[in-house]
């Protein structure tokens, strides 16, 4: 068997072992490691590379840990004449000096190589700009080929198989952009533009969060990440670039009127209407998003109504005031209009 084949066998064996060990560990801890927001369920090349680094270090670390613990117990409990060899300076030189130097001399270059290969800008990547704001995400898709630019919020949709180049910054304090299934995190720092690159390899719904403490509602600052097949992505993109759809029934028209007179447009933009505020999330296609409140609640007419009426109760400290004075009827109309903005 040549060296390469051996390596493949070893790699395969290691992989199976690690997967089984991980599965066992997950079972023991009564949770699934697969998840919409898990570094242990990689859905992209970078996340896989880091996942393998994790697995190798975990397995290696566990072995070293078991070794050290066994030596310690041996040093305490073995009969004195049998453990005498351990009680010498040699133990320190070999165990504490030579062994770490050899191990780390292998690990460090491996870590650096993973670092080199992770988060690498690619030709033809899809650019996306994300701006962290206190407790939500402003997302901009710049013009790309025939496609025009548009803004959305708290949701990132990406095509599978194409590299994504996300530029991030912040409008207020430091946030951190993290989609565990696709790779590491990158801080969003006012005055600096940082970049992170990743490729989604598996269609599905994932979740990202803010990883840097950013104030009162840091805990409620998440977003959805949806990986679509390229055609579906193009279709989504075309839809998003369009202006908001007209209300089709009187109730929704009333909702739009309430939106207008209530002054919602001074903070929110709904393209195709006079609402053009830039302070809060763009709501042109808010009805098409999976969740509201920055990844907090499933998006439906009920949660939308609840959000409008009780913002400060649900997520105290956000900029948007509660509109608790709306009548039930008005609230339904307004929420219905929002929900209709697919």
């Amino acid at each position: 068997m040549n060296l390469e084949a051996r390596w493949h066998t070893l790699h395969g064996w290691l992989g199976t072992f690690a997967k089984r060990a991980a599965a066992l560990f997950c079972m023991l801890s009564l949770i699934g490691c697969s998840g919409v927001q898990s570094a242990l369920d990689p859905a992209g090349g970078d996340a896989s590379r880091i996942y393998w680094l994790t697995v190798i270090m975990t397995v290696g670390g566990t072995l070293i840990f078991l070794g050290v613990t066994s030596l310690l117990l041996y040093a305490i409990f073995a009969p004195p004449e049998r453990r005498a060899w351990l009680g010498t300076r040699g133990t320190i030189v070999y165990g504490g000096l030579a062994f770490p130097i050899v191990t780390l001399s292998a690990l460090l270059p491996y870590g650096l190589i993973v670092m080199r290969d992770t988060d690498v800008p690619q030709e033809g990547a899809l650019p996306i700009e994300v701006i962290g704001e206190q407790y939500w995400w402003r997302v901009r898709y710049p013009a790309d080929g025939r496609q025009t630019e548009f803004s959305t919020a708290n949701e990132i949709v990406v095509p599978v198989g194409r590299s994504i180049a996300v530029s991030v910054t912040s409008a207020d304090v430091i946030h951190s952009f993290w989609i565990p299934n696709f790779g590491g995190k990158i801080d969003m720092i006012p005055g600096r533009i940082n970049r992170i690159n990743f490729t989604a390899e598996r269609p599905g719904v994932y979740r990202g969060v803010c990883a840097e403490f950013c104030g009162d509602q840091h805990a409620r600052m998440a977003f959805d990440v949806i990986a679509l097949e390229p055609e579906a992505f193009e279709a989504w993109r075309t839809e998003q670039a369009k202006p908001a759809r007209e209300p089709e029934i009187p109730l929704l028209a009333r909702g739009r009127e309430l939106f207008r007179v209530g002054g919602c447009g001074s903070c929110h933009a709904v393209r195709g209407t006079e609402a053009s505020g830039q302070f809060g999330p763009d709501l042109t296609h808010v009805g098409s998003r999976r969740t509201i409140g920055a990844g907090q609640f499933p998006n439906n007419i009920g949660t939308l109504a609840g959000w409008i009426a009780n913002t400060q109760h649900i997520k105290p400290g956000v900029r948007m005031p509660s509109y608790g004075s709306l009548s039930g009827e008005d609230l339904r109309a307004l929420a219905g209009y929002m929900e209709s903005l697919k």
Binding site: A39, I50, L53, V114, G184
Partner: peptide, 8 residues
Amino acid sequence: PFDWQAHD
């Protein structure tokens, strides 16, 4: 690279 995941 591991820290990019584990950090914070």
